[in-house]
Design a protein around this nucleic acid. Sequence first.
DNA 1: CAAAAGAGTTTGACAAGCCAAACTTGATTG
DNA 2: CAATCAAGTTTGGCTTGTCAAACTCTTTTG
Lengths: 231, 231
Amino acid sequence: MPSAAVEDYVKAIYAMERDSPAGEASVAGIASVLGITKGSVAGMLSKLKKSRLIEGERYSGVRLTETGKKLALDVLRRHRLIEVFLVETLNLKWSEVHEEAERLEHAMSAKVLDRLDAFLGHPQVDPHGDPIPDANGHVPSLDGVPLSMLNETDQGVIVRITNQGSKFLEFVERHSLRPEARFTVVEIQPEAQLISLQVGRKPKLSLSLEAASKILAKRIKQPKRTQRRHT
Amino acid sequence: MPSAAVEDYVKAIYAMERDSPAGEASVAGIASVLGITKGSVAGMLSKLKKSRLIEGERYSGVRLTETGKKLALDVLRRHRLIEVFLVETLNLKWSEVHEEAERLEHAMSAKVLDRLDAFLGHPQVDPHGDPIPDANGHVPSLDGVPLSMLNETDQGVIVRITNQGSKFLEFVERHSLRPEARFTVVEIQPEAQLISLQVGRKPKLSLSLEAASKILAKRIKQPKRTQRRHT
DNA sequence: CAAAAGAGTTTGACAAGCCAAACTTGATTG
DNA sequence: CAATCAAGTTTGGCTTGTCAAACTCTTTTG
Ligand SMILES: [Mn+2]
Ligand SMILES: [Mn+2]
Ligand SMILES: [Mn+2]
Ligand SMILES: [Mn+2]
């Protein structure tokens, strides 16, 4: 029975490992995402090593063991299913569910989670488009390219928001850019590092390529414009 | 932000206060229901006093302050709404939801709880028939007399199970005695301290008056037996 | 390549909760 | 009413998880 703290560490390590070029998590990195001091992290990491959840040489980065990875995926599954529930069933705002899930994920048994999963219809992704690992730790792979890689006139569907900051999520939500949303790339200005989108009937939306790189989308095959209607 | 431990203490004190003749909770009693030592309880109680959640003289019982009572009712509300959710929505067994709720109650924000309440249709009682305090700390009062006080030929509806032990709950469930269930008192044997019930079409069920006193019921006005059907 | 900067580690301290065991108080009762 | 005993309290110790601050590697860079 790992503590809430251990679960959060393992989850943080999982994410850093995935995103870092070296495939490792650093003490400073973990400290920064968990908002605690390096000293505390060092202490916890040596416990995690003793309990075989992570490995790594002294004075260098750490990696999850198989056991550690399994735990991380389990926590992630809980977190994301809870987010789906909060948004779909309880109608909480998209941008405020993360904190809630951060606490609830540590209080939900496997049994309750399985029932919840069934109740929600075995969703594949959470409200931010992040894939939900199945009960065996398999993560459905999702295709999606950063918005910043698209070209003018491309059409697409948002599939995932990579930047989970609540400010950013609110911005994204305000402009209806949530997963499933369709859009057209109206204009790209490489000099200004800017991309402009048309989302639904909303006014044109511009954002920096940097910001756009945190939003993943899937291209829609441009349908041949066969004359389907007349009015 | 009271800790989970504090919330559980306060909840235990609330229940003991209600059930004890003196209207007070004792160190030994709290220790026994929470499964910890008297020493630990003494330590916690002095903290609770310092933070004005309870009061009481040295070497005597404790009572909740207004603040304490408010907190207790809040935790109880969370606990019971969660139990309703687990049973009604996730179809967990009636007798196994208590443990789950015991953990989840500490991880759910007021906001989530309100949404949950609305989603469930503002239920008045939990699956065991215990009343759910509203958001202002008002507890709906329920009438119900111990099964052991009924007379032969009385008909009634179960409204509440007072003994929350999981063995007892399983027994009760096995015999379809959950809240809402209708029954008839078939026979009472004062010498044997026994009461026999007819529940639905199930075989006659006998239990001790002691056990029966943990089940509360509401009498149904005996309907005049007007000949309604012929076959 | 030596010095400074960064990253990681160690140490001592603290708060929350818990336990075991000794101790104190107050209630019961012979 | 004094002995007993249950109930309450105190003390010392332990674990988990955190911080601040000093320390030690490793990496970068002038
Ligand atoms: Mn968490
Ligand atoms: Mn998410
Ligand atoms: Mn609890
Ligand atoms: Mn209940």
